[in-house]
Simulated scan of single mutants.
Amino acid sequence: MESFTLLRQKGVSSIYVRKGEYEGYKAVAETRGIGIVEVERKTDPASVAPGYWYLSNPSAINGNIIPEEEIEAVCEAGHQVFYDLAYLDSTRPHEFDVRHPNIFAAVVSFSKTYGMFYDRIGAVFSREPIPSLYGTRWFYNPEAVLKANAVLGSLQPNELYSVYRPGQEAIIDEINREYGLGMRPSDTFLLGHLTADDAKKLNAEQLALIARHKRADSYRFCLTPYYLERDPEEREMLLKWRDYLLAEAEGILTPQQMDELKKMIKGVLEQ
């Protein structure tokens, strides 16, 4: 998220995000003194003043692929786009076009699709240098880079989607049988979603059950915990990671910081 540092150096005071977008944008932007302007998905980008848009694709709002013409419309309206491709390689084959000159940076991550969130591996591709990232040249983790290279080298194109899409559908079928939600599979195999119209069909008890999953006027559900239930070995590894982090932090962090760390770890385990 060092792109926010760059924007602050440029004198940018606010960015655009769609309602229901990844909450991390707001959290980090606030630490740099940058405000958030939330816009509806149907907002015509030409109707707002040119600025910087942070867009995830597949969308963190519902896990579905944003059509390329929507991204292009933002760019053609004179906006600069930070393109978050964290869910890359978790959908059917799709070309995410980053060629437009107004896409000022694009990022990829190994945390979601490849399940390597405890390794913190990712990459940023920027059209201009991001000075605050320069220091990482001296402190990068060779082991993490080797892991990333090994993972990519072991997979065929579309392999993960082919393997996990049936599991996604089975998980959602189970949830719908138990709770009657009418949940739909998202384009990324990691998520399920409900549209605003779907939610109108639910009763008060069902809406209360899913309230914390609401994003704007729709709902997004992370399926990772269900995949972990089907893979006890992976679940055990994550729990060991949790215990290690907490043991290392004990006696160093304040009680308040420990509470924040526990919330962060819980969020990772439930992503």
Results as ranks from 00 to 15, higher is better:
185 P>L: 07
226 Y>R: 13
237 M>P: 00
214 K>H: 11
175 I>F: 10
230 R>L: 15
242 R>G: 02
225 P>C: 14
243 D>W: 03
191 L>W: 13
180 G>Y: 08
262 K>M: 01
252 I>W: 09
186 S>F: 04
267 G>F: 05
214 K>L: 10
233 E>L: 13
204 A>V: 12
212 R>W: 04
200 K>T: 00
186 S>A: 15
235 R>H: 14
268 V>K: 08
227 Y>H: 15
245 L>M: 05
255 P>Y: 10
210 I>V: 14
214 K>E: 11
209 L>E: 04
243 D>R: 11
209 L>I: 02
223 L>R: 12
201 K>P: 00
180 G>A: 12
243 D>G: 03
261 L>N: 03
248 E>R: 09
195 T>W: 09
241 W>L: 04
252 I>A: 10
252 I>D: 11
266 K>N: 11
200 K>L: 06
181 L>I: 03
246 L>S: 03
240 K>N: 09
252 I>R: 14
197 D>S: 07
236 E>A: 15
191 L>C: 11
176 N>F: 11
176 N>L: 12
218 S>H: 04
175 I>E: 05
206 Q>E: 07
200 K>D: 05
174 E>D: 14
234 E>P: 00
260 E>T: 05
252 I>M: 11
203 N>I: 04
173 D>C: 15
270 E>F: 09
249 A>T: 02
222 C>A: 12
225 P>Q: 14
258 M>Q: 03
264 M>W: 02
189 F>G: 03
185 P>N: 10
220 R>L: 06
259 D>E: 08
230 R>Q: 15
233 E>I: 14
247 A>H: 06
190 L>A: 12
260 E>K: 06
227 Y>I: 10
